[in-house]
Nucleic acid binder design. Sequence first.
DNA 1: ATGATGCAAACTGTCGACAGTCGACAAGAA
DNA 2: TTCTTGTCGACTGTCGACAGTTTGCATCAT
Lengths: 229, 229
Amino acid sequence: MSAPLVTPLEIVRTRSLASLVAQEIEQLILSGQIEPGERLNEQALAARLGVSRGPVREAVRGLERSGLVVAVVNQGSYVRKISVEEALQVFDIRVALTGHAAASVAARATPELLMPLERIMQDLKAAEQADDAAAYYALNLEFHAALFEAAANPRAAQLYGALGKELHLFRRRALLQPENMRQSNVEHAAILQALRDGDSAAARTAGERHIIGGRTRFAASHPADHTRP
Amino acid sequence: MSAPLVTPLEIVRTRSLASLVAQEIEQLILSGQIEPGERLNEQALAARLGVSRGPVREAVRGLERSGLVVAVVNQGSYVRKISVEEALQVFDIRVALTGHAAASVAARATPELLMPLERIMQDLKAAEQADDAAAYYALNLEFHAALFEAAANPRAAQLYGALGKELHLFRRRALLQPENMRQSNVEHAAILQALRDGDSAAARTAGERHIIGGRTRFAASHPADHTRP
DNA sequence: ATGATGCAAACTGTCGACAGTCGACAAGAA
DNA sequence: TTCTTGTCGACTGTCGACAGTTTGCATCAT
């Protein structure tokens, strides 16, 4: 049994070039290959990706709307330079989302509903004990996605992810240090326990604390500068 | 003393055409001149606005990222048709944001901090008694913006606004009925009172209730259909 | 030496054109 | 009649080109 054969040509056909370019540029930004404040040269990007400037411009416009890029007329687009204040605001929004989702799940918690979270929690523990930061990082994302999934709010999950990308402009993997990993997982466990108990208030608090923890670690490692984009 | 003279030509120079086009199309969508599900004809839009298709395409890409438009390859872009489920999810996000902001403000409430809210509350009461739905509508937006302002989180305010636009795709001014107006203002008053008391928990509850109220009114007037975009 | 001024290269903003694709409609077969 | 098939029109996706602007550099005056 072989996987369905798809020629590269067909792949190009099913998605617009602009969307592929957007994905590519986003990757360049999030991976740090293009740093915040750096300029996006349309011609260079077009040449690098083997397309004309049209799709590149469309892609950049999209990234602009999603907050990863800022555009200056007749001057070009720059990778957004997010200030500490803005990052803290974004954290605050994530606090609200996570706390609310946790409370909502706790109110309707059943073992079946929590099953995905339980499973991920197992994996998280394993990754933690193995000191596998990369795996932990991925599982962490999964955990939060599963939380919103359980809250029956995929829109919130998507938003949470978008906000995460925005934060990526700043903290290049601040979470990936072992001690942070352990602390983070203690918080995960607290959330899950509150969910099991069906304790809405506790779940909200635990959810909020978890993000506030990240926020605090972030604030501690970044002196309050006032860089404007 | 005359205001600085600016020729139309210079106006065009300070903002990119694409951004102006985006603003224009957004207006067309939010005002209902282009209805959800309707197709956006690039050529027609370009002709109507007196520009070429390039800026129009860039604008549409931006609107796509911000969720007002969905694009299908080789077929075109459509004004997003939001389902009841999605709308409820968006409401839920607004519940989280508002509740959190209210709690946060209550925790740091001072008369000075609340002053803008107090002022808007006065105006809201006036609009309510005058049965001036249009004014009430505008003031309502102001009230929420001021709440996030007091919470020192302009990013959340922006997000709240964006989510509001998304909801506009559905409820064409459901709020503008007199009885809803009164109910809504009772809820506003409850929020403000909790803020004055510095009661964080009560403020959160009041903030959440307010949006949940809107959500409930929405759900009541829209039978659960399952329209996919 | 330093600041102002003018020039040139690079890049953005915008446009028009072309090729490919999708949907509708009509014609023919079952 | 109903389903299939072929064709036509409209529109999207993409590209290359041109004009206007910004920036960096060299030149010149002070």
